[in-house]
Design a protein around this nucleic acid. Structure first.
Lengths: 231, 231
DNA sequence: AGGAATTTGTGCGTATGTATC
DNA sequence: AGATACATACGCACAAATTCC
């Protein structure tokens, strides 16, 4: 058995403490020396733990001032896989649900291998800086939720999956093409009849690498684009 | 005046040394203790410097083994950044050069910040299973090669860069959109006049993170697509 | 305005653990 | 099994930024 390094254990401990509300977002934590003594570790060890949490974005450390809790840890990876940006870069993403319905596998059949054929379909409008930028159809297994109403849906479906369904999306595969979008997309994005859209077909895989989500996203290349970084 | 921390200075120094070829890709650097003494700093300070370089991807550190300069991708990773596939998956990639010329920065000006304005432009046809799938325009600095003829070009430009120019592409950024392609693309891909193509704008960064390559690729979504995997 | 106190950042040195060769 | 090299952990001193009186 190989032990977890102390600084990572300490980091996990603090992470849980923060998640449990021991310190609230915006609050200042005790100084390094005090915290280190309370925890019974050297200051350097604590510093390394705090550094990892800062890197995760959970903490903010300011010289001469203190260590501050940055935010609630729940929303760790909300927009981790969101790849759209405005043509001049950036844009704050949000989402509006357009429709929610059960479907009998007529669409997206076989796309989620090994899943039951009954699926939920969610149509959404994706916004950048509060202006419509893309439209998407999302499919996931009916088995996760026999009942589901629009009000139940979290704005971040990934959070909904995690908090309601007990899994999270750890990996996605995108296949990118372009086409004339379906009518409902044209309508909601207010596109002219002959506007070609970029089409992103996505498969999302869970933490245990099961295919859990299938989606198609359309957007007008005149307004935004897909950003990819590789190394 | 506020001084740069010593560990960042040391990091910069090592970065330059490596870029200058003092240690070659794949080579093992001296052990921490020795390097620290040579540089006249404490081991901890050197470690912090090495950590930043490892984070940049310039170094690889292996416990019990040593610190290694990250080597250029091996021969089998020629198409590490090639993202096109046939609609039913896969396809063997190859390339044909269509034209090669110097250009006076009329196109792609400013895309390679800090580079001279004179650039080489290469137009190529990309094939999948020996059938035309995409067309691309590639730009790189004229300074790398005052003379260059078509016969000199390697089928893999990335290999050409590595073997002739002494750098390699370690990271790319793709921005994906769609549009009606330019005439030369239509001609070579034999596209009807109104066929919208996916357009991939790519910036390639070298092992020392300098922008070295700019390219635009067009392909017909009816024949192939761009594949992205995220985790 | 200014100086003291507080708090994190930087840097050093050492000892021990653990992976690799 | 032994030697080597990086990883972890401890503790201390001083610098720099911020806060508070």
């Amino acid at each position: 058995m190989t032990r977890l390094p102390l600084y990572l254990k300490i980091g996990e401990l603090l992470h849980r403490e923060i998640a449990a509300g021991h310190w609230l977002p915006g609050e200042r934590m005790p100084p390094e020396a005090e915290l280190a003594e309370d925890l019974g570790v050297a200051v350097g060890t604590l510093r390394k733990a705090l550094a990892t949490l800062e890197e995760e974005g959970l903490l903010q450390r300011r010289q001469g001032s203190g260590t501050y809790v940055q935010r609630a840890p729940a929303g760790n990876a909300i927009y981790q896989f969101f790849r759209l940006e405005l043509l001049d870069g950036g844009g704050v993403p949000s989402a509006d649900v357009v429709s929610l319905k059960k479907c009998e596998s007529a669409v997206a059949t076989g796309h989620l291998a090994g899943k039951p054929l009954q699926q939920w379909q969610v149509k959404r409008l994706r916004l950048l800086n509060n202006k419509p930028a893309a439209a998407e159809e999302i499919y996931f297994s009916y088995a996760h939720a026999p009942k589901l109403v629009l009000a139940d849906l979290h704005e971040s479906l990934y959070i909904h999956y995690r908090e309601q369904f007990g899994f999270w999306i750890a990996r996605v595969e995108d296949k990118i093409s372009c086409e004339l979008p379906p009518e409902w997309v044209k309508k909601h994005l207010q596109l002219a009849g002959n506007t070609h859209c970029v089409r992103v077909e996505r498969r999302g895989f869970s933490n245990v690498d099961k295919p859990e989500e299938y989606s198609i996203t359309w957007f007008d290349p005149a307004h935004c684009r897909y950003l990819a970084r590789w190394s």
